[in-house]
């Protein structure tokens, strides 16, 4: 995972600092965790979209994104 890839979307995190959701499950999710989750998903979704469009752009110029970050797994 490259940190630089996330830089533009990190800005999205900064401007989305207003969130949380009520917790009503049998498991206490932790207030801080729920607030935090609602914050970071915006960032992560933007990062995912960024990756998707970046792959498209690279595709346009004939540079297929065959690179995979996932290692061969023991599972």
């Amino acid at each position: 995972m490259k940190s630089s890839r996330y830089f533009p979307v990190f800005l999205a995190l900064v401007v989305t600092l207003t969130v949380s959701v009520p917790a009503y499950a049998y498991l206490d999710p932790g207030t801080g965790s729920v607030i935090y989750q609602a914050l970071i998903v915006a960032f992560l979704a933007a990062a995912a979209a960024g990756r998707f469009w970046w792959a498209k752009v690279k595709g346009l110029f004939g540079r297929g994104s065959s690179q995979s970050t996932d290692e061969t797994e023991v599972e």
């Binding site: 995972m1 949380s20 959701v21 009520p22 989750q37 979704a45």
Partner: peptide, 29 residues
């Protein structure tokens, strides 16, 4: 905290969270 409550996590965003957790786990060796 009260003010922040009620914000929704869209399905697409939830999937991005799971995908990020999956990368986090996959990146440890």
């Amino acid at each position: 905290k009260k003010k922040m409550s009620g914000r929704k996590v869209k399905l697409q965003a939830l999937r991005a969270l799971l995908s990020s957790l999956s990368s986090a786990i996959g990146g440890l060796s």
